[in-house]
Amino acid sequence: MKKKILCVCLISVIYSLVFSACTKDVDFNQINDFEVSPVVESSLIFLNEPANKFYNNGVELTTFQDSVAIKIFKDKFIKDHLVKAELVFETSNSIDRGFNLRVDFLTDTNTLQHTFNFSVPASPTNSVLIYNYTEVFEGNELLSLLATEKLLFTLNLQPGEAINESTLGSIQLKSKGIFYLNIDNTL
């Protein structure tokens, strides 16, 4: 008899343990707050040329222009999650001529969405002059960026002393894009 009582007690203990597991408060709706904000940096355009590259067969070349098609902003993920972008240009000039870089943001049908340009001063003593420029895309500018399908780069040497084979110095341009993303639970 004693054993039976013991047995019933034990079984009740086991059952209460198995079936009465309790919980502290958890809130699975917190998943709705999910948000990560990675920042991605990527190299963009570059240039590193001596002065005589701007001189060909006795003629000074003052304007260079070319365009590239850009597909990245058509991507739905980028459209949905890009919240801010910056284009950062680092230049160093040791030629005694200033130059201007213009970047036009175009659609496939050449509708201008956005444009900016910056000028780098000449270096009369051929010492290396550093000049940096940052273009920030937020709000309406960001929308223009996201509508961009083509970039048109125009490099113009500014007026100054004529360039020939023996002109000293060089132009260096490095650039990167900084893309601020915000990924939330709508992913």
Partner: peptide, 9 residues
């Protein structure tokens, strides 16, 4: 290895 592009030269 991606280092960007050189559109002018």
């Amino acid at each position: 290895i991606f280092e960007g592009i050189n559109p002018f030269f």
